[in-house]
């Protein structure tokens, strides 16, 4: 078990080093002068020369890469060329909003996707199975930005029951003190017992939440369904049934437990995918998260910030994969 995990961790570190290497050198190859960007529009050559030294761009590439790695190791992603602020700090500021969205969609994936898959498998080829499969295929294949815009049009513009975007209503923001404890808005409202703001925040997260959650729900439902179908044909299920165990127990505890392996990998990977999906959704729903941050960085050619987000995304992928591996490793059949 320990050996298995250690190997996975090591592999993860190699992947991250690879990503760091590629992003660093790609950013250097791209025809752009970071010093000019740092110095600002209409800077003169002296200002740019000064910026080159400030940014350490006059040193050999290998030295720069070494320093970059050292900084990365300390959690320092460098400074943004546009704002001159530490990227780590900027990321941490925009991270909570995204994490809330991603968490919500993952919870939805687990609590809606899995039961949907189980029921679908149980009632194979019945109406409910067809409907659930239709839903899953739709959820997985419809483009996120399209869903976002349609939801906005229907629920904000036509029906006017959900707000168009943002994390909170402007009125709430200007009239009330927004609790800031951890930076996670919904969580902060909960622990400070601020229900008015909580209510408003929940109201705002519904549309972007659905937009993002649809994909993982569909994916998890499909995955659970196929895993369950396979398991329901196993001998031990037949045995359990012939012992006269309640169908509910057979389904939800025997069969589901054994299908959790592939499903958890899918959940973990879909978190990574969801993180990327927020990039579009956040800009549609003016959600102040990482997606919004990266879009500004890309438009502004802010390479250190783009690199920072890339490394961060890779890091989350590796971490989530590791978590999935560990969950699977809890299954004695996988331990080798």
């Amino acid at each position: 078990m320990t050996k298995f995990i250690l190997r996975r961790v090591l592999l993860g570190i190699i992947v991250l080093l690879g990503v760091a290497f590629i992003t660093f050198f790609v950013a250097r190859v791209v025809p752009s002068n970071p010093a000019a960007k740092w110095a600002g529009p209409r800077a003169n050559p002296e200002q740019i020369a000064k910026a080159t030294i400030e940014l350490g761009l006059d040193k050999p590439l290998v030295v720069q890469f070494g320093k970059y790695l050292m900084d990365l190791f300390r959690g320092n992603l460098g400074n943004s060329l546009r704002t001159r602020r530490p990227i780590t700090q900027e990321l941490l500021e925009s991270l909570p909003a995204t994490v809330e969205l991603v968490l919500l969609s993952t919870i939805a994936a687990v609590f809606i996707g899995i039961p949907l898959g189980v029921i679908s498998a149980k009632r194979k080829d019945k109406l409910i199975d067809h409907l659930s499969r239709l839903f899953s295929i739709g959820a997985v294949s419809l483009p996120t930005f399209w869903i976002g815009l349609i939801l906005q049009l229907v629920f904000f513009r036509i029906l006017d029951i959900f707000p168009m975007g943002g994390q909170l209503s402007t009125e709430i923001k200007i009239l009330m003190d927004i609790p800031k404890v951890t930076g996670f808005l919904i969580f902060d409202c909960l622990i400070t017992g601020n229900f008015t703001i909580l209510w408003d925040a929940l109201w705002h997260i519904v549309l972007p939440g659905i937009t993002i959650a649809l994909y993982p729900i569909g994916l998890v439902a499909r995955m659970t369904r196929s895993a369950m179908l396979e398991i329901l044909n196993e001998d031990y299920i037949t045995a359990a049934r012939s012992y006269g165990l309640k169908e509910r127990t057979v389904l939800w505890s025997y069969a589901l437990k054994n299908s959790i392996g592939p499903t958890s990998t899918v959940v973990a990977l879909s978190i990574g995918y969801t993180l990327v999906n927020t990039f579009l959704t956040e800009s549609i729903f003016t959600w102040p998260g990482i997606g919004s941050y990266i879009s500004s960085a890309v438009i502004g050619n802010d390479y250190p910030a783009i690199m920072g987000v890339t490394i961060f995304s890779a890091f989350s992928y590796v971490l989530l994969n590791l978590a999935a591996d560990i969950i699977i490793a809890l299954d004695p059949r996988v331990r080798t």
């Binding site: 906005q152 168009m164 975007g165 800009s283 549609i284 003016t286 102040p288 919004s292 500004s296």
Partner: peptide, 21 residues
């Protein structure tokens, strides 16, 4: 009170101004 808000999506900006948001 004045709120300067980044709304990068043009479709959203258009909806905001049409509805008075």
């Amino acid at each position: 009170i004045v709120v300067f808000k980044k709304v990068s999506e043009t479709a959203t900006r258009r909806q905001m101004i049409e509805t008075g948001e």
